[in-house]
Simulated assay, not measured.
Amino acid sequence: MSESQVFWLISAPNRPGADIFDIVNTKTAKENSLSENVKFNIPALRVGTLNSLIALNDDLAKVDNFVELTSKKISKQLTDLVGSKPGKEKGLSINGQNIQQYLSKFQWDDAKFNPKSSLQEIVDKIQSTVAKLDEDLRAKLTDYNSLTSSVVAEERKLLGNLQVRSLNELITTENNTQSEYLTTAFIVIPQSMEKEFLATYENLSDELSKFVLMRSAKKIEQDNDYVLYGVCVFRKFYDNFRIKCQERKWVVRDFKTETENKPQERSKLSEDQKNYKTSFIRWCRIQFPESFVAWIHLKALRVFVESVLRFGIPMNFQAILMKPHKKEDRKLRDVLLDQFKYLGSQHISGKGEEDASEKFFPYVYVPIDWDI
């Protein structure tokens, strides 16, 4: 099958003396070239009671949506981590096969989903397995984002402007007066306000004029946008001075309370983030097949349950995987409707209907949309 990632799973009863797959394949592939088709074999599962089938059929669509969403979230996360579509670099592999190969050669996995179990037990196992994957994904994403945010914050301290960058390499004993009564306030001022600052910092208020050392402002550093000054003030009135600076939109960097990582600590943090990313990518590649295989088995269950409800017992239906050719969906619908109208009902959609998601067809129809 070619590159399209949207497939149809349909099912219909075999006709006396004829294989329904051969009939469908002749009309849709050989005569009209509307789709590519393969048999999609589903084992004879335990049917149970009619009431249990009806109840299960109502729940299957909800579980299907959840499992699909989780599979796509893992796939998208892998794409985000590797920086390219994982399908292009063989990131999405199911037992050594790509998605299309796996679907085309689908075989029920007896080891994972015992066909002798009840249908409800199989659905419960699928739901619990994928729920655990979804929980793990959210936890890993939270940890990874936390590490990434820490690395970004450290990079800002190292490379950002004077409002955020580390002061460790700028503050020295020469420009940092600390005594019992005096302390140095470090103020970041926009360059456009430097003259205003120098003219007013000694007299921001009548109260502060007595507690800021005259002519104590020293320029420490300058970048493209800001200037860093140190001003010597009486320790008792440091908080008052900071408030007055903030009122003028000057940023006071409280150096004594900053927790700044040393270069080797920053390097370790970056290495931890890199290692976690590698581990996260590996997890996605390992767990994606688990979620995707569970999803396709759930699709098979939906086809099986609806086929039994529609066509009855003994079971004599055939599921078919179809890949519609590009822009041929409507024609394909028309051909299928013509072939199966004998199974019809007054609720069947007429020809030309485009949205098949909420329509009823004479055959069982379950879409597999991997167009992410």
Rank of each mutant, 00 (worst) to 15 (best):
E3D: 13
F7G: 01
S11V: 11
S11D: 07
S11G: 06
P13V: 06
P13K: 14
V24F: 04
N32R: 15
S33F: 09
V38A: 12
I42D: 06
L56K: 11
N57L: 13
L60Q: 15
V63R: 12
F66H: 11
T70Y: 13
S75V: 01
T79Y: 14
S84H: 13
S84R: 13
K85E: 14
K85Q: 12
P86D: 06
K88T: 09
L92E: 10
N95T: 06
N95R: 12
I99S: 09
L103T: 01
W108G: 03
K112F: 04
K112N: 12
P115G: 02
S117P: 05
E121C: 06
K125C: 07
Q127H: 11
L133T: 14
L137P: 07
L137V: 15
Y144N: 03
S146L: 08
A153F: 10
A153R: 06
Q163D: 10
S166V: 07
N168S: 13
I171Y: 02
T172R: 02
Y181P: 00
T183Q: 01
T184A: 03
T184G: 06
K195N: 09
E196A: 08
E202P: 01
N203G: 00
D206V: 15
F211K: 08
V212I: 10
R215M: 04
S216Y: 00
Q222Y: 03
D223W: 03
D223N: 09
D225G: 13
V231R: 01
R235N: 05
N240S: 10
V251D: 15
E260K: 07
E260W: 03
Q264C: 09
Q264R: 09
Y276S: 11
I281K: 04
I286Q: 10
F288W: 10
P289H: 08
S291M: 07
S291H: 06
F292G: 11
V303D: 08
F304V: 14
E306D: 15
S307I: 11
R310I: 02
G312C: 05
I313C: 03
E328G: 00
L332G: 02
L332W: 14
V335L: 10
L336G: 00
L337P: 00
L337N: 04
F340N: 00
H347Y: 12
I348V: 09
F361T: 00
